[in-house]
Design a protein around this nucleic acid. Structure first.
Length: 468
RNA sequence: GGCGGCGUAGCCAAGUGGUAAGGCACGGGCCUGCAAAGCCCUGAUCCCCGGUUCGAAUCCGGGCGCCGCCUCCA
């Protein structure tokens, strides 16, 4: 396999990837905040992380992958003001925060699995790692990075000179005030809460004792504490959305490097771009969300969405339109149809003929996970005249270990036969008419079914029908 | 106001100096009693203007348009 290059946000360029421990990669991906359903835009980060993991494994590396579940502390407003999203959702629905968290965590895990993501090696929950978060805040306090105000314990970014390094933000040029809003006593606009006190007189569903008082951990802290606990004081790769660069990841670095006195805490930062939904970002706050089940209700298979994802590079905004989705669904179905035929193929495989396409596929992936280029190779192989069916299948099966499109088992839609007594009878009637060469009657029955949206296909093994 | 990205055939989308991957759709063909499915064929000089270069979609400058972040968000 060729040399793997990945785009490191820290350097703003592609770099050769080399794990800290030879042969073993430790990676962490920012996971969902489980206060509501994850939509298909939210799925992109996990598809990306999964593609990265599979590519690393394809390259012969062992991977330990951790994705966190944020089920406490993520505020509705910003790092300082606003309410905890979990508490708000609980209030709105009249249910327990824990119950909601469990439900949305399950939904997220199920959707990830349906789009072919391998289960991470751990999915730690923030609420179950509060002591580790407190310990981290305590160390930061010991080392002089914090100050206490009425609202909570805060990280003082002026004590951390590298603060703007990842984001390359010109802090002075930021619109002042936006992030101080609502909190009295903050020293710098970028300072953020490590521990928030429960509001006076308010009994939260989720709150804990701490050296500073009863309350809950700030957002950001859970990712630092848990990634370190599961992956060590320094590790290889940390992934997330581009929106996390200026605040969430910047704060994670400040906390972690401040507490541990290490640098770099994380070697490679990788960020995926957003899904563009009909001209704007898909986001819960805009209300233009689409969940995986909405796609399924339209007859789109979950793995067709993965195929859709693979058609664009992860660092480019990808445009989601109904037409683009339909194109992906058709493309995926055809690829599955081809795979279905090829995987039954017998015959000799000339290993020397596999080398060229195999290396082009690997090269595409090794160039910062260029999945669209890899997919071009897939199609060239799938429809190649130069390769035998057995050779084509050998390659496709190999490629699918990285693509995760289930080419070894999936069945094309044409093969999925429905059954309905009334329709079956009409089809049988038409077959009888055809046998008697009564074409007018045969066409009448076909047209009648077509009017109901039912398509007939006459194949060597008889007539089958499907809706569309 | 600061920061980042994008603008390639009808749609999605690769390609960052040597004369444009791939998928989908459209049209044509083969196949079919007719269809469907499948297979084959067919299409772009790369937002505009100027510059650098033997040569630019790719580099530089200037426009226009769009998106994102800076404030919850992947």
């Amino acid at each position: 396999m060729s040399e793997l290059l990945v785009y490191n946000t820290r350097a703003r360029r592609k770099e050769r990837f080399e794990p800290l421990e030879p042969g073993h990669v430790r990676m962490y991906s920012c996971g969902p905040t489980v206060y509501s359903a994850q939509h298909i835009g939210n799925l992109r980060p996990y598809l990306f992380a999964d593609l990265l993991r599979r590519t690393l494994e394809h390259a012969g590396l062992r991977v330990t992958h951790v994705i966190n579940i944020t089920d406490v502390g993520h505020l509705t407003d910003d790092a300082d003001a606003g309410e905890d999203k979990m508490e708000v959702a609980a209030k709105r629905t009249g249910r327990r925060a824990e119950e909601l968290a469990a439900e949305y965590e399950q939904q997220w895990k199920r959707d990830c699995a349906r789009v072919g993501c391998l289960p991470p090696h751990a999915t730690p929950r923030a609420s179950e790692h509060v002591p580790a978060q407190i310990e981290m805040a305590r160390r930061l306090e010991e080392r002089g990075f914090t100050y206490r105000i009425e609202d909570g314990l805060y990280f003082d970014v002026s004590k951390f000179p590298r603060y703007a390094e990842l984001s390359r933000l010109d802090l002075a040029g930021q619109q002042g005030g936006a992030r101080i809003g609502g909190v009295e006593g903050k020293r710098n606009p970028q300072d953020f809460a490590l521990w928030k006190f429960a509001a006076p007189g308010v009994k939260r569903q989720q709150e804990w004792d701490s050296p500073w008082g009863r309350g809950f951990p700030g957002w950001h802290l859970e990712c630092s504490a848990m990634s370190i606990q599961y992956l060590g004081q320094t590790f290889d790769i940390h992934t997330g959305g581009v929106d996390h660069i200026p605040v969430h990841h910047t704060n994670e670095i400040a906390q972690s490097e401040g507490a541990l006195d290490v640098h770099p805490w994380v070697n490679v930062w990788m960020h995926e771009e957003f899904l563009d939904f009909r001209g704007e970002k898909m986001s819960k706050s805009k209300g233009n969300v689409y969940v995986l089940d909405d796609l399924v209700a339209q007859g789109v298979e979950p793995l067709a969405y993965r195929y859709f994802f693979l058609q664009a590079h992860y660092r480019q905004q990808q445009t989601f339109t109904d037409e683009a989705l339909a194109a992906a669904a058709t493309g995926y179905d055809r690829l599955v149809g081809l795979a279905c035929e090829l995987r039954r193929a017998q015959g000799d495989v000339d290993a020397s003929r596999l080398e060229e396409p195999r290396s082009r596929f690997a090269e595409a992936l090794c160039d910062d996970l260029n999945a669209p280029r890899a997919m071009a190779v897939v199609w060239q192989v799938a429809r190649s005249d130069a390769l035998s069916p057995a050779e084509r299948w050998t390659l496709l099966a190999e490629f699918d270990a990285v693509l995760g499109l289930d080419l070894a088992n999936a069945e094309p839609r044409a093969a999925q036969q429905e059954s309905d007594p009334r329709i079956d009878a009409m089809v049988a009637g038409r077959d009888a008419a055809r046998a008697a060469k009564e074409w007018a009657e045969a066409d009448r029955l076909r047209d009648a079914l077509a009017a109901e949206g039912i398509l007939l296909e006459d194949g060597p093994e008889g007539t089958r029908w499907r809706r569309e």
